[in-house]
Design a protein around this nucleic acid. Sequence first.
DNA 1: CTGAAAGCGCTAACAC
DNA 2: GTGTTAGCGCTTTCAG
Lengths: 351, 351
Amino acid sequence: MKKPGSARRQHARATINDVAERAGVSPMTVSRVINGEGNVRASTRESVNLAIEALGYLPNKAARSLASASQIQIGLIYDNPSSSFLSAMLLGVLEQARQSDTQIVVVECDNEAQGIEAIRNMVRSGMDGIILSPPLADSEYVLQLLQDSDILAVTIGTQHVDHEVLSVQIDDYRAGFEMTEHIIGLGHRRIGFIAGNPAQQSSGLRLAGYRDALAQAGIDVDERLIAQGYFTYRSGLDAAEQLLALEPRPTAIFASNDDMAAATVASAHRHHIEIPEELTVCGVDDTLLATTIWPEITTIRQPIVDMSHTAIEMLEKAIRAKRAGMASESTHLTVDFRLVKRDSDGPPPSV
Amino acid sequence: MKKPGSARRQHARATINDVAERAGVSPMTVSRVINGEGNVRASTRESVNLAIEALGYLPNKAARSLASASQIQIGLIYDNPSSSFLSAMLLGVLEQARQSDTQIVVVECDNEAQGIEAIRNMVRSGMDGIILSPPLADSEYVLQLLQDSDILAVTIGTQHVDHEVLSVQIDDYRAGFEMTEHIIGLGHRRIGFIAGNPAQQSSGLRLAGYRDALAQAGIDVDERLIAQGYFTYRSGLDAAEQLLALEPRPTAIFASNDDMAAATVASAHRHHIEIPEELTVCGVDDTLLATTIWPEITTIRQPIVDMSHTAIEMLEKAIRAKRAGMASESTHLTVDFRLVKRDSDGPPPSV
DNA sequence: CTGAAAGCGCTAACAC
DNA sequence: GTGTTAGCGCTTTCAG
């Protein structure tokens, strides 16, 4: 009831030859058209396009990458599997990878040891490049391993100028600085700060930005206003409690990320402190949480999806350069962030 | 400085021929070994493996799928881009897709109209199958379109027995029922319920489960205890306020998802209501939020990653069956959920 | 501007 | 058990 070989319209997807035949040209010309090469007469191009349309032709990816030997394989290693950072990153990476002919292999790991193991595996299995997200990408050891392994790699959202590993990140120092400036501009003087995990470079940079903005405004830094957190909601809760117990209480709290800002909001609510009337709360990242909770949090937006696009592009470029035998310089790209004003900040309560 | 053809170890990744040569066998035998086909003598297999090891050989995916014509293309359409549901789903889908030789094309859409457009595009472009997530997958129109389009599709986390579209989901009715039972078991009688978006089937089912569990326990359903939400944090906040204003106040609130449960926690905190001492709060989904906030929420865990694996597997199977000319029956797989007990529930305050 | 020939790396199908 | 012969669908030469 359906002889094989009779290959009717059944499942024999149109090939480049079918298109060529229908358009009365050679397959090569069709190839030129679909690849947008300029040197095809307009009329030829048009008839080819017509044929493509009519046949619903779609190039076969596998054939394409096989013939052009263009395929790139990139490994994506992440821990911190729950964060919405990951979700955005994944999306960005996949979108970009789809366009270029790049295969992404995603591997999860629970800790640095596993991450290192994963990297080793990827190197051994001939992956062309590796892309790393924050917690792992902050490890000196990992960075060094990557560099020594003679594999191309890129990190997203992490600072490290002293390694050859590529990177895309925002300027965390400026993020800390500008947010603090923003809060000062609102009229605040007693501004609490919740620092992030000291193992991540960005933590120190954001804190430095906070300090310098304060200094620039001629405000002395009160060390009691700086609480240690670890980028988790839970740690933010403790830090916020500590800050809110201070006498006099800070009129604003700048948390190094949204999770901790959200925790600060929760903590404030628990103490019946109104936001933003009695307390301004700001974060960094613009993750899901920032707009999930109420009031929505004023924060710094890292364009993670775009950063991921860029990261893949950089890596692809470097890989192609390497394949062509050219040395590519290591790049550290800093992308712009944006302060997103929402509902959790305002002037300090009039004393 | 690098003649083509001299193809030293430069970047000419070892091919199956290199391996064959080194092992002193034919490429075909190597192929058999790497595909784990049984009919190879152990000694032969071993020498091939040795050669593979030595050369660091890795099969070329593109060549493989081209030769075996096995490649499957599946489109993944989602809206609701922020939810952690998406992240889990993406992970699951990708993991599974990587193993089988399946290409995933991810497309975002902001609303149903765009989703429909996306489906049309995918059908036209010869995608083998489509995978859909909740908000879109709940649309009758979309389901019908899929069915009419003669394309295989699967939905995750959505109920619809009356269409030929495949589906993987938990039993939302039982989820509602069991959670309510759990809360009743704790000793509660006045149990508030926050319903989800009425456009999603799961909302009604969870509510029905709630009603029936109550009925079974001989508790009359007080309609004022049922508040309308829309699965968003914001809507949960309003619903919770409404419920907490009731006299007498419910001793427990069961929200149809974690976002609304989290909102309920926030709302309770605002009113200085201790959780779980004065109020039990439970959710459904076990998303990121459930364990991010404090106290961590007792909830129903949907194994989204596994469900995604399964969904892809089902789709692949159906696609292969279709290619082989066999009709595959439409399957609606219901997977087990688990009630995850955490810190947001407890016995009612002693009156 | 267009075409012909050759082959990317692998696996079906068949032989032996 | 193993090798041979084709050819997947496309792009790369290199000719015209």
